[in-house]
Every structure is written in structure tokens, then in C-alpha cells.
Design a protein around this nucleic acid. Structure first.
Length: 741
DNA sequence: GACCATTTATTTTTT
DNA sequence: ATAAATGGTC
């Protein structure tokens, strides 16, 4: 009977134990690929179906919104019904929701906004200007970082003043703390950190509210527990009731967010705080080949602060890990793309099952260029996020201002966007007035206007601006999100401004705005009841992975942090060099090196069958060449598991498998002059041979024209075209789907 | 206040 | 190398 049981089928004894374990605190140590998600979803299904727990009593916390959505889908699929009332979300989303409902108890109005990193920084810069602290002497980003660190620990931001800050900086910092809190309060704004700490404060100070949530969430499940921070852990403890039905899943080897306040001590503390906790270890890896698993564990075993454990698999050996030492980053990109194409064309791998990982976002560019030249479809996960684009932030700022006139950061952002002749001097004047009278930016503008404080020409412009915002605020009260957005595009003149522009990038911006409209339509379809506030909250809490859509024919590119929780048949890890991975910033601290090593472990264990590692002998950083030795992590992989491909210098003793310390295998030889590389210069061009001056082409937007000039290469291939209608324009071949006629 | 030329920072990782 | 910030001129 058990084979067909959708809740208990195909579970190994430990998984079964975790799924069916009785009430009380439970900690599951789930190694990479050990079926953690399966255990979580089955556990929820088990609670609901077998223990008769109402979905309404369950809170499941995941690391991304996407993971949350997937988890809900899976449980609903197992049970064959909707689980309305069950909360599955990230810490941040859950807190935003709680504050939206009950934040008024601690002075947070229903229409509060969430300031992102950018908004925070803008505010800090304004405040620094106000107190006369010079950015040259005192980096606003340091202030932001200190705020963040304090909030991650659920401490007052003022507590960070002691320690690293010196007299003057300390004075400035303390002033900024007060002003920041004041301004955030005035603007009805919270930052990411506030979402957690304010929710904790709400529960802590309000017995009634705390009791209500404790009663409601009788079962709490937390995924990726190793990456929770102290504030989140405090919140959990406030939320958990006397039954202590807290089920956490984590793996200390996969803790890669220490810099964001994640605290491995939480795992230790859990066992201290909940001494009666059941402990379950999932030790079988179902994902990777034995070779890959073995290699990854060999690497992570070099960490000293780590609980000794090992994963096993019944998977057969598998292919060796392939290593390539490239000449430079372009050669490396050619290697990866060539191998990826080979996997697709010759071995029938679907592009969506291939991923290229890198340590830093900046590395994606060269690889993207190579994809373009090789005509290989790709998708970058993360990087410059959609909602961080200027045009999107502008439109979102109008939305924010429409629902919350006190949002001064939003007001300042768009008062002269599109250009309406209200310049920096005027802006400063309003800001000063606002600071002096302790009112918001918009109120200050209204005040000055009422007193007739603006010069004649200006007065008219300000009047128009203010009445427009007034109309939008009214609209925000009654219109659906999509209609409000449309009205904003029209009434602000933003749409007209862009479509009248001749610049090609403004055309792209217009496309992005249409994309935004689409996103809003989809949101309305999924949540017909949702308000504009809900939409704004949802977008500010989006994670990079939330945009990840593997259902297309493109290979995937992302940072390793972004790859957390994902898996692929074939994985490339590029830039395996000292100084890049492990990153320079970690080199001086053993703890940080160990975190880098865990990042490497996470990256390697994403792979099912094929793993490719590469490094470059030299690469350009900040415009000049640098030569990095191969990453220490390469030499921590047993040489029996590695095979080096591509051209090998005869003096690089590579075939000597007897070497156990294999670091020397990767030692750099000085490069003299130009060398032909295995992954040479010949390229499948992006139609460059099809585009020559004088040729007639068709552009999907601008119509037909004649090519005047072709310049650049790869991603930067630009084509100057004289269009039959509309004159001469320069377009990027990457975006413009040009069709030779 | 717009438009240019020059200078400066950028690269960890992100909810 | 390149994008953003700054500064000077009209």
C-alpha cells in the first residue's frame, strides 16, 4: 500500500522519520541533494492529511518567493486541493504581511512602503548633506551597512557606533541614526531589516497580538535554516507557542550568507534553546554522480569549523570533472560556450539543464558576449534586476507617491522626471524647508507654494506637478493597479517623453515599461483582490531567483549565491582563481575563506552529471591585466576525479596522477607572446558577414533602411542604419532583430 | 538648466 | 573598460 501512498512513497527511513515525526521541535540536517524539499512538502501534506491539521495553522518559511510558490504547488498537487490560509513565504514577505495587518499597533500605517538599498542610500546621502557630513570623508554605504548589520542582529542601530568609528565619524553616525529613524517614520517607510525587527518588536511589546499569532501558527517550518540571521531567529522564538512545533531544515556546509547576518550559531542555539528537539540526519545524496559528490566533499572537508559528516550515494561513478586553464577571460568564455554547445548538439542536453556559475556578477558580461557571437540563447538570472532599472523605478516611485504622499524619496526622484523644469536648486530649497519644519518633501512643496514662495515661472510648474500628484492620489484609491499604472504613464507624460525620444535606449525603456504593465496584469490575474500596495510590496521583496524561468531553450547564467537550492545536469564554474574565487576580500580572514569554500561546495553540488571548472591565466579587471594563480579549491579536488582538457603545456606535469597535492598542476607558466588557443578565434558570427555597408535590412520597429557602417563586436556590435522613414539611427545588433533583405 | 568634457568609482555575494 | 558623477560653459 505504501508504494502508492502519495505522501509516504519513495522515502528512505530518515526521510520517513522526518515526515512522520510527532509534535515538538525538530531539526533536520539535510545535506546537499538529500531530498530536503521533498521532506518539507511531504511533511506539510502529512500534517494536513494524516494529522488533520488545518492549513490555516501552518507557516512555512522559505528562502525565496519562488521556492515558496513551488512548495505550495507541490503540496497542493500531492493533496489534490487548494490550501487556502496556509502561509508559505519568505521571512520578509511574511513580516510585510503581518505589519500590513497589525503594524498600526506600533505606529506603522497600512500603506507603509519598503525602501530598498537604493532608497536607503539616497536618504542617507540627503541626511549627510543636511548635517554637513562630507561623503568624501564618510562613505554613506558604510552607514547603510552598519544599519543593516545592527538590524540583522535585532539591535539598535546606535549600538554600531562603538567599535570601528572614530570621534567625528561617530558623532555624524549617531546624528544620522536619529535622523534616519525620524525620516523613515515620517515617510511611513521600512527597510528590509525593519521588516524583521519591527515585526519582532510588535510581537514582543504586544501580548495580545503575540498570542493571536502564536495560536494561529501552531506549526512552523523553516527551510535553509543555516542562512537565517539572529533577528529572524528571535522572531521565530517569539512566534513559536508552547507546543514548540518548530521544524527546521538546514545544512551548515551550505551556509553562504554570513555577510548578510546569517549565523551558523542559530543551529547550535536551536539545540540549546530546544533541548528536547528531535534530530534527524539526511545523509544520502540523490542528485550528483559519485565523482561530483566525492570531489565536492573533498573540498569542503578542508574547512576546520564544520561538523564532521559525510554524504553517500548509490549513484554510479560518472564522468570525470573537466578542468580548463584559459589564456584569458575571453578564452574561458569560448571554452564554456563551446562545451555547452557540444552538450546540446552532440549529447542532446536541453539548454535549460545547463548552467554557468560565477562568483561575481561582473563576470557575466564576457560570457554573454560569447553567447551572442555563438548564437546561443542564454538567460541571466539576477544581475541588474528588472525593478532596479531607472524607468521602472521612476514609474514605481509615482505609484508610491500616489498611495503615500509622505514618501519623500519617491517624491524627490520624480519631481523632475520627466523633465519639467524643476531643477536641483528648487529641489534643495524644498528639501531644506522640509527639514526645517519637520514635514515631508511634498508637504514642503505645498507649503512654499501656498505662501507664494516660488518665482512666477516656477510657481506654475510646481502647481501643475502638485495637482497631477493630487489626481493620481485620488486615482490610487479607486483604480486597479494596472489602470493606475496606465494613468501614471499618460498623466505624467512619461510615455510621451519616451516615445518622442529618438534615442534607441529610450525605445528599450518603453519596452521595459510595457513589460511592467504585463507583470501587473499577471499579478492581477493571480491575485484579483490585490491592491496597489500589495503589488508594490511584492515587487520590493522579489528575489533574483523569482525571475528564474527554466521553461525555455536557453542556458542559464547566475552567481553561485543565486544558484542556491537549484540543480542542473551540467554545471560550469568559471573564474576559479585566487582573488576571484576565493574572492580577494575574503583572503585575509580564515572564516571568510571557509565561507568561500562553502560557496564552492554549493556550486559543485548543484551538478547532476557534468561539471566543468575553469580559470584564466590572466584577466582584465578595472581595465588592466591581472594574473591570478588557480584557485586553491581546484587543488583540493582529488586528481583522480579531474581531467584537464584543452591544450596542455608539456612542462605542466598534468598526466601524473600520482600527485596527491595537485596544486602544481595548475601553476601558471609565464605566457610569452600570442598563443593559439584550443578554443580559438573562429566564431559563428552574429550575422556580421550578413551586414555590410550598403546592404538593405529590415528592423522590427523602424522598418527598412540601408546599413551605413558596422562597428564593435559581440554584444557591442553596433550597426548604423539610415532608415527610409525616420533618419539615421545606431542600433545594437544584440537587441535589434535585423533581417537582411 | 542643458550640454559637453573630465574625473571617479566600480567588483563580492542579496532578502 | 565603462558607467556614473562632477564640473564648467553657454
Amino acid at each position: 500500500m505504501q508504494e502508492t501512498d502519495p505522501i509516504l512513497a519513495d522515502l528512505n527511513p530518515q526521510q520517513l522519520q522526518a515526515v512522520t515525526c510527532g509534535n515538538g521541535p525538530i531539526i533536520v540536517f539535510a545535506g546537499a541533494g538529500s531530498g530536503k524539499t521533498r521532506v518539507l512538502t511531504r511533511r506539510i501534506a502529512y500534517l494536513v492529511e494524516r494529522n488533520g491539521i488545518s492549513p490555516f495553522r501552518i507557516l512555512a518559511v522559505t528562502f525565496t518567493n519562488k521556492a515558496a510558490e513551488e512548495m505550495r504547488d507541490r503540496v497542493e498537487h500531492i493533496l489534490g486541493r487548494d490550501l487556502k490560509g496556509m502561509w508559505v513565504s519568505t521571512f520578509h514577505s511574511a513580516c510585510a504581511r503581518i505589519l500590513r495587518m497589525d503594524g498600526d499597533r506600533i505606529g506603522i500605517p497600512r500603506n507603509f512602503v519598503i525602501y530598498d538599498e537604493d532608497d536607503q542610500l539616497t536618504l542617507i546621502k540627503i541626511l549627510m548633506k543636511q548635517i554637513g557630513a562630507e561623503e568624501k570623508n564618510f562613505d554613506p554605504r558604510l552607514v547603510r551597512m552598519l544599519f543593516d548589520q545592527a538590524k540583522n542582529k535585532n539591535e539598535d542601530i546606535r549600538s554600531m557606533a562603538d567599535g570601528i568609528l572614530k570621534s567625528l565619524h561617530k558623532r555624524w553616525y549617531l546624528q544620522l541614526c536619529d535622523l534616519y529613524d525620524q525620516e523613515m517614520h515620517k515617510a511611513s517607510a521600512t527597510d528590509f531589516g525593519d521588516l524583521i525587527t519591527k515585526t519582532a518588536a510588535l510581537l514582543e511589546t504586544n501580548d495580545e497580538i503575540r498570542a493571536a499569532y502564536r495560536q494561529r501558527f501552531n506549526y512552523i517550518l523553516v527551510d535553509e535554516f543555516q542562512d537565517t540571521n539572529l533577528a529572524q531567529y528571535s522572531l521565530l522564538k517569539l512566534l513559536v507557542n508552547a507546543d514548540q512545533n518548530l521544524f527546521v531544515v538546514g545544512d551548515d556546509d551550505q551556509s553562504i550568507y554570513h555577510w548578510r547576518g546569517a549565523n551558523l550559531a542559530n543551529i547550535l542555539n536551536f539545540e540549546k534553546d530546544f533541548t528536547n528537539a528531535a534530530k534527524i540526519v539526511l545523509g544520502q545524496n540523490y542528485r550528483s554522480s559519485a565523482v561530483i559528490l566525492d570531489a565536492a566533499q573533498a573540498v569542503v572537508r578542508h574547512n576546520r569549523s564544520r561538523s564532521d559528516k559525510s554524504l553517500f550515494t548509490t549513484n554510479k561513478g560518472g564522468e570525470k570533472i573537466k578542468a580548463y586553464v584559459a589564456d584569458d577571460e575571453y578564452d574561458e568564455a569560448r571554452f564554456a560556450i563551446r562545451e555547452a554547445s557540444d552538450l546540446i548538439e552532440r549529447r542532446g542536453v536541453l539548454p535549460k539543464n545547463i548552467a554557468i556559475f560565477y562568483r561575481t556578477n561582473a563576470q557575466s558580461r564576457v560570457i554573454e558576449e560569447e553567447c551572442v557571437t555563438s548564437n546561443l540563447r542564454y538567460a541571466v538570472v539576477g544581475g541588474l534586476r528588472f525593478y532596479e532599472r531607472k524607468e521602472i523605478k521612476d514609474i514605481v516611485a509615482y505609484c508610491r507617491l500616489a498611495i503615500n504622499p509622505d514618501d519623500s524619496i519617491a517624491a524627490r526622484r520624480i519631481i523632475n522626471t520627466p523633465l519639467r523644469g524643476i531643477g536641483a536648486a528648487t529641489e534643495d530649497r524644498i528639501q531644506q524647508y522640509a527639514a526645517l519644519n519637520g514635514i515631508s518633501f511634498l508637504s514642503a512643496a505645498i507649503s512654499i507654494q501656498e505662501q507664494g514662495g516660488f518665482a512666477k515661472g516656477l510657481q506654475n510648474k510646481i502647481h501643475q506637478f502638485l495637482s497631477m500628484i493630487g489626481i493620481l492620489s485620488e486615482s490610487a484609491k479607486s483604480l486597479k493597479p494596472s489602470l493606475l499604472l496606465k494613468e501614471i504613464l499618460q498623466k505624467t507624460g512619461y510615455e510621451a517623453f519616451l516615445s518622442e525620444s529618438k534615442k534607441i535606449e529610450d525605445q528599450t525603456r518603453l519596452e521595459n515599461i510595457n513589460e511592467l504593465l504585463n507583470a501587473v496584469y499577471n499579478f492581477e490575474k493571480s491575485f484579483p483582490e490585490a491592491t496597489i500596495e500589495d503589488y508594490l510590496a511584492s515587487i520590493s521583496l522579489m528575489s533574483d531567483q523569482d525571475y528564474f524561468d527554466p521553461k525555455n531553450g536557453a542556458i542559464n547564467m547566475m552567481t553561485i549565491h543565486c544558484a542556491k537550492g537549484l540543480e542542473f545536469d551540467c554545471v560550469f564554474i568559471v573564474g576559479m582563481e585566487e582573488g576571484l574565487f576565493p574572492h580577494v576580500r575574503s583572503l585575509s580572514s580564515p572564516q571568510e575563506i571557509e565561507e568561500e569554500r562553502r560557496i564552492c561546495y554549493v556550486a559543485m553540488t548543484r551538478a547532476r552529471h557534468h561539471l566543468f571548472l575553469s580559470c584564466a591565466r590572466a584577466r582584465r579587471t578595472f581595465g588592466n591585466f591581472r594574473s591570478n594563480p588557480p584557485s586553491r579549491f581546484l587543488s583540493e579536488i582529488p586528481s583522480s576525479h579531474l581531467i584537464r582538457i584543452g591544450q596542455v603545456d608539456s612542462d605542466e606535469a598534468f598526466n601524473d596522477a600520482s600527485q596527491s597535492d595537485s596544486f602544481s598542476r595548475f601553476k601558471n607558466k609565464s605566457i610569452v607572446g600570442q598563443r593559439k588557443t584550443t578554443y580559438g578565434e573562429e566564431r559563428i558570427s552574429y550575422g556580421i558577414e550578413d551586414l555590410w555597408p550598403g546592404r538593405r535590412v529590415n528592423h522590427p520597429v523602424f522598418g527598412e533602411g540601408i546599413v551605413m557602417h558596422v562597428e564593435g563586436r559581440g554584444e557591442h556590435l553596433r550597426v548604423v542604419i539610415r532608415f527610409d522613414v525616420g533618419g539615421v539611427k545606431t542600433v545594437l545588433a544584440k537587441f535589434a532583430k535585423l533581417e537582411p533583405l
